[in-house]
Design a binder for these strands. Sequence first.
DNA 1: GTTCCGCATGAATCGATAG
DNA 2: ACTATCGATTCATGCGGAA
Lengths: 273, 273
Amino acid sequence: MLKNQILHGDCQQVLQTLPNNSVDLIFTSPPYADQRKHTYGGVTPAHYVDWFLPRAAQFLRVLKPTGTFILNIKERAVAGERHTYVLELILKLREQGWLWTEEFIWHKKNSYPGKWPNRFRDSWERLLQFNKQRNFNMYQEAVMVPVGDWSKTRLAKLSDTDKIRDESNVNSGFGKNISNWVGRDMVYPTNVLHMATECYNRNHSATFPVGLPEWFIKLFTVEGDMVLDPFVGSGTTAVAAKNLGCNFIGIDINEVFCELTTNRLTLQTSLTQ
Amino acid sequence: MLKNQILHGDCQQVLQTLPNNSVDLIFTSPPYADQRKHTYGGVTPAHYVDWFLPRAAQFLRVLKPTGTFILNIKERAVAGERHTYVLELILKLREQGWLWTEEFIWHKKNSYPGKWPNRFRDSWERLLQFNKQRNFNMYQEAVMVPVGDWSKTRLAKLSDTDKIRDESNVNSGFGKNISNWVGRDMVYPTNVLHMATECYNRNHSATFPVGLPEWFIKLFTVEGDMVLDPFVGSGTTAVAAKNLGCNFIGIDINEVFCELTTNRLTLQTSLTQ
DNA sequence: GTTCCGCATGAATCGATAG
DNA sequence: ACTATCGATTCATGCGGAA
């Protein structure tokens, strides 16, 4: 079976070559809906749900019954309002047979700057968890975080500004040096993830930190499992899967991104951070 | 006109005594949908939207055109899934004439411990912002926060390029003049709020910290404006409004809560924290 | 080899202006 | 009227070269 490759094409077609029930985790950040016509995909908010659903039907087919689908998405502001296409998508995905198990929040500590008269900077995105059945594989111990002295001393003396500001890495012990913490008290994380976006120049505008897919890969797979990203872009999900000893398949409609990602995966020495 | 009182009754009826366009801010945390019958009439998730909509119609009527409605809500997990009543409610409120301007996230830093095989602790809630029109009152300066630590080192010594406007190379449209930042201590916040929960009254399921309504009252009103909480419960919104020099009206269907809140407001010395 | 520090960049949004 | 393009605004991070 196909594995550890970046495939070029529209995932709606490419996925037809994958067998049923063969993927353990789908983690993807699809191109966000956009008003403009020239950008990646050029899908407008009004057409987003119709565009997404046939692709999601393929996701449903290739995912194992015990597998999980994580969708990273955020609606944009249109005419002064948050658009509703993400809400509608969730409802339609349930009609398609998905269970909407959970919604995680990614808090982006370094969100895009700017000032407007009617809203503040948007510093969070949705990570929607969908499953095929109520019983799915989840390895909670793999993402435990150390309980710092923080929780004991810090909460006792919160100033007003502290209450508003984010000032900590409490829940961000993601991965890296977990072994250093063995022997200390470990606790389970919550459904709010704190991570900064990566500003590293990858010639791809949509860069989420590699720690984000890593966290979900640890949580929902074991070594040797299959991870799929049908909108792989600059390949962050594939890098995360490779780092963690998983097999992966990445798909992208943009051939340049496919080549960049393939190169990134072979030259991985400098790109694992 | 009626002001600074806690009124007993179902807000759907009680609100009929308020005039049109008379409220500057509605901040409320309605009783959560529940399978059990103890709460507000025992509203189940399946009936939640139908129960809420006629009340929201009254909110729309009494709110000033420049006013704002903030709804603190979070869907429950039912049968292994997040229930969809909040999503459906947003869509229906828009049909009713509301604009869905923004969704703030309340990150509950000390969410209640617990462990389940299929999900982590839920440590965030939605704060949905609705408006009657695109132009509404917003006083952003009232909620500015201290600039991050990055500025201490970053601004310590300026290079030559820092002193002039440095246009971004990549046509992202973003230039900067770092020297503008010297001496600036406060910045605008984002749409993610970090606050610990409080447990003022354990008999009321929805206990939020007084800092939460305070933040929105500062942002959307000035002194003397009218704040309404149609599900006032233990009175936190009313306390916040009083602290900030606003007028308020609180409504609750539970007579015991009405009495407790009225007492809390008179004994306010020890309860403003 | 470390630490320090300069500096580009990022899933943005609004209002005005031009076609 | 309605759409498309453009200019203005702004905060935190991590890379990479220098010390």
